[in-house]
Design a protein around this nucleic acid. Structure first.
Length: 359
DNA sequence: TCTGGGGTCCTAGGACCC
DNA sequence: TCTGGGGTCCTAGGACCC
């Protein structure tokens, strides 16, 4: 294998292991080794994260909490504390930025780092990871590859606490026989549609005739899927991503009937959304609502205004009009309010928090 | 077993303009 | 009087990700 220091580009994906559970275990070390599940408490809550002990019972992210209790009655259920996860995440990401110039934060528990040009990329990542463990007490899994796609899939191969480095050829060997569904962006629906074409594995996707994929998926998605199957990916790290929309939504414990019953929750959602946006000086031009009915169908309505706003009265007024016009034809299980088309002030997703300046 | 909350991106169709 | 094609903006739905 060509050593990674000589690759044209080299990227790592750092993915914190069972992040929310691991953070909770720092506060409650007596739970270590037990099945632990972070989940809300309502009748319709789902599991946010399950410890590896709980996963052995079939409890995973997005498992309904009611089902999780049945699968693993002895599990310890912990309510999520996102404020705390956000602050732990900021510490981890800060350490990554101390070690690497170019970091793209993907979520609270995931970031890409650019290792291109480093003399000893492997050792550099190991140092960063050791510091995350010693100062934050958290483990992570790392994938290293010549592009983001390979780094990402590699990071999933040996969780938890994995460390997998693959060049293009090694990645083709390792991923080729796996389901095409291991590729990020290829979800259950796409797996099913590929299956109808007798395409099951990553290698088969890469070897498929482009014309067939174009016929099935269109002139853009078809070739894109084929490139993914060949583990080709030319994306650079994007360190300047801006938030494009912001929303608040809630699923009711019991379905609500009629527009009148939805007014109080609508006010609450608009209030929370506008308060948070206002605090950051963010405004948006398109106001939208989201309504999920009892048959799980989801409907959205939106209206674009002449100028951006985060004004509660205006956002609520537009949201009310949209809801009234939609007039839900069945009981409603979820209601959401959204503002899109954000003007681009104070919207950076990826910036280092300016802690130093405020101390 | 009944399915959260917060996002991104893509597609398709219609309006409108040139 | 009828016709084309491209570009952009907007809306709605859906797939997908963490």
């Amino acid at each position: 294998m060509i050593p990674p220091a000589q690759w044209p580009r080299c990227y790592a994906l750092v993915d914190m292991d069972a992040f929310y559970v691991s953070v909770e275990l720092l506060r409650r070390p007596e739970l270590r080794g037990l099945p632990v599940v972070v989940a809300g408490s309502g009748p319709r809550a789902v599991v946010t994260t399950a410890s590896y002990e709980a996963r052995r019972y079939g409890v995973h992210s997005a498992t309904p909490a009611s089902r999780a209790r049945r699968l693993c009655p002895q599990a310890v259920f912990v309510a999520p504390d996102f404020d705390h996860y956000r602050s732990c995440s900021a510490r981890v990401m800060g350490l990554l930025r101390d070690h690497f110039e170019i970091v793209e934060v993907m979520s609270l528990d995931e970031a890409y780092v650019d290792l291109s040009g480093l003399e000893r990329p492997r050792a550099s990542v190991k140092r960063a990871r050791a510091e995350i463990l010693s100062t934050c007490g958290l483990n992570c899994s790392v994938g290293i590859g010549p592009n983001k796609l390979i780094a990402k899939v590699a990071s999933d191969l040996e969780k938890p606490n994995g460390f997998v480095l693959l060049d293009q050829a090694a990645a083709r060997d390792r991923f080729g026989p796996l389901s095409a569904g291991v590729i990020p962006g290829v979800g259950p629906k796409t797996v099913q549609r590929l299956g109808a074409l007798r395409i099951e594995t990553v290698a088969q996707l890469g070897d498929a005739e482009e014309e067939r994929l174009i016929a099935a998926f269109g002139p853009r998605l078809g070739p894109h899927l084929r490139a993914l199957g060949r583990l080709e990916d030319r994306r650079e790290l994007d360190t300047a991503r801006l938030r494009k929309s912001e929303s608040r939504e809630t699923t009711f414990d019991r379905d609500l009937r009629g527009v009148e019953a939805l007014d109080a929750p609508l006010r609450d959602l608009a209030r929370r959304l506008c308060d948070d946006m206002g605090a950051r000086g963010a405004r948006g031009q398109t106001i939208g609502i989201k309504v999920r009915l009892d048959d799980f169908s989801t409907h959205t309505r939106a209206r674009t205004l002449p100028s951006p706003t985060a004004d509660y009265v205006l956002v609520l007024q537009v949201a009310r009009e949209l809801l009234l016009a939609f007039d839900p034809p069945r009981p409603v299980r979820l209601l959401g309010v959204r503002v899109a088309g954000l003007d681009q002030q104070g919207q950076a997703l990826n910036a280092r928090p300016q802690l130093e300046l405020t101390i």
